[in-house]
Design a binder for these strands. Structure first.
Lengths: 144, 144
DNA sequence: GTGTTTGCAAAGTGTTTGCAATTTA
DNA sequence: TAAATTGCAAACACTTTGCAAACAC
């Protein structure tokens, strides 16, 4: 998928644009990670997880850079962070309005299908505040 | 509120019962923590937080025991755990069905008033699973 | 060249664990 | 007395940081 080094310019034209638009320099590491994240189906990754993918893909990148990139991407609106349990933070490449199933048994996170709409009446936020986002996590477990 | 030591027996009759019912021995530490948690208004505490309260109330208890107790209380259904951000886990003494405002600016957690009902249409859980719980966190921030 | 980004290893944070000593029943 | 619980300190997982070297523009 990714060759291995130095080919920063050519083949990722669209990723380069995407990063630029987000105000991030298209470095080799960011491009490689962006490629893992955004080329293909939507994903829910955690840092360690993406780091492993990178290694497997012969991408030389440090764990610290993975963390930094994930946060930069999130701030730039390219990713959405979902926290489901202490020490279990996912980054979702699907940034459209949607919610999640969290499987308590194996810790996996899955989008709730769009057509299975959860109709929410938004509550009135406390005086002086406004709603930034609504997170709905439907915790599921195996039927015994 | 709590005197200071050794008076495990008498004055916490109802707490003792509550713990016994939950299958937990009413030790001095658990009684003291239960007293902080369950006598008075509903609270959203984190471990560190409750530990500080204990110290302030001259209750001799270790941080490890606070963690253990919080989890035991949660398993026993006396508390409900709410995770809002990586490394930010709250325990809610209100175990009725309800949801939360999470204030992004200061990290505080507040119950959404009961009468401000969020009507959810529950999604169909994936094959072979059932819904264990639905967590809704409404993230709010100060109006600029 | 200048400012940004990276990698490393070290430091942090929040939480859990192992085990001897203590407490409960 | 037997079994459960506690405290401590060490171990832990996950994440962030400081800084010199490498890179983008």
């Amino acid at each position: 998928m990714i060759e291995s080094g130095r080919d920063t310019g050519r083949q990722f034209a669209s990723l380069v644009k995407q990063l630029r638009r987000a105000g991030l320099r298209p470095t080799r590491q960011r491009l490689a990670l962006a490629s893992l994240l955004f080329e293909g189906d939507n994903r829910h990754v955690c840092a360690e997880n993406l780091f492993d993918d990178a290694q497997a893909g012969n991408i030389r990148v440090s764990l610290a850079t993975v963390y930094n990139s994930l946060h930069q991407f999130t701030e730039a609106g390219l990713l959405r962070e979902v926290t489901v349990a202490p020490g279990r933070s996912y980054f979702d490449t699907n940034i459209t309005d949607h919610h999640h199933f969290y499987h308590e048994d194996d810790g996996s996170l899955v989008d709730i299908p769009d057509d299975d709409v959860i109709s929410t009446h938004l509550p009135v936020p406390p005086e002086g505040t406004k709603i930034a986002r609504v997170d709905i996590v439907v915790r599921i477990e195996s039927k015994k």
